[in-house]
Design a protein around this nucleic acid. Sequence first.
DNA 1: CGGTGCGTTGACATTTCTCAACTGTTGTGG
DNA 2: CCACAACAGTTGAGAAATGTCAACGCACCG
Lengths: 232, 232
Amino acid sequence: MSEAGLDVALRALPHFKAVPADLVAQVASMSRFVRLDVGAIVFREGDPCRQFYAIVNGAVKLYRVSADGREQVVHNFHAGATFAEAALLSFGRFPVSAMVTESSTVLLEIGGERFVELLRTDARLAPAVIGSLCMRLAQLVERVDELSLVQAGARLARWLLRQPARGTSEPAVELGLAKKELAAHLAMTPETLSRLLSRWESEGWIRNERTRVALRDGPALLRLADGESGPT
Amino acid sequence: MSEAGLDVALRALPHFKAVPADLVAQVASMSRFVRLDVGAIVFREGDPCRQFYAIVNGAVKLYRVSADGREQVVHNFHAGATFAEAALLSFGRFPVSAMVTESSTVLLEIGGERFVELLRTDARLAPAVIGSLCMRLAQLVERVDELSLVQAGARLARWLLRQPARGTSEPAVELGLAKKELAAHLAMTPETLSRLLSRWESEGWIRNERTRVALRDGPALLRLADGESGPT
DNA sequence: CGGTGCGTTGACATTTCTCAACTGTTGTGG
DNA sequence: CCACAACAGTTGAGAAATGTCAACGCACCG
């Protein structure tokens, strides 16, 4: 029963869709479910890494804590994503910490040594791993590109435009994280984020709600996003 | 003769060190040398991707051009690095443009379709690809972490401390790129970079030369990197 | 030897941060 | 169900950092 569940969970991951059934079964045999609540630490920066993870349900953030105690979020992951493969496959230690950010989050913990062994012997597993790494790479390139914009407004506009938006007449972006965290993600203070949203709302570009932002004037946001880009 | 040269060049790449000789030979048979000068475009954002590259000698920058024509450098690569694997393996198009930044740069162009085919059939090739992707991932995480620092001085100090430094009594960092480009890399203007270096030099933290920066007071730089407020 | 562009410096404008007070929401325990 | 604590979010005022514009010196390259 548990085995079957693992199988199903693995198949639900985008990068395991194309992996043959017998391989999925083998990976399932080296995996187990982990249920965690908000605030639970999955692993800490510097810990030795003997497994990697997939998110069945919920969300996890990867972050670092600097010398003076402030926390910088490197990445937010949601259902379907895998993480810490790179730590397992190349570094042996986690380069960041991971914390659960949604209640009743369910992870899939995939055993390391046997997975590495399987990867070394069966070429059919590599595409799944490579695909997931490439996806992560692309996201990080976007992030770098975004953070390189000097003006805070440009970073915010660009982030908003990149999010999946619901509704055609007035597309709205579900923030999915606290504004405080969004501010950190965009390398600005909560105050400036709040002020930007207020100003844009009074200009009629957006509508600012608690957990979502309605985009009322796409062209205006586009202008903000690249009208004021970085140097060189 | 050309074949032998390709073999040697491939072996010189960090991630191909552990690949068996017969595999290297196969990869060599689908590769060719390309010599380019400063300013040459290797490929453009959006172009279809049918090969990836390794740098035998020289340097290449990956960059994007925003709507208003300004250019943002995403990554700088030097000898030994490979790039565009992700574009080849997962996306089919280049997500960024690439330009040569050193004279008489020599690239290795590795044919795409046959390489993908080889990757699919021979499990011994995957570690080289995965290793290189993981390395890139780690670099980008560092970059995100760095760019997330709000203060320009903190970004600079952190970058300096992360560079390989020569000399024990007075470690010195070879910049390896124009200060203008470094400023862009750190998401600040050339003027602020210049002012920061001048101020730190007058404080005695560093010595500022044309192409290198000597680190005279590591602890002070560490304090700056952790977000302490600037001097005086 | 003159041009071209990088690097520096100065004066000034602007953005953004900091600090502080206040509001609203959420969740908890009585 | 209400009071209250805790915390996210907002707003204001002032300070600091950083960008902009402009001028100049200096190196490198033809």
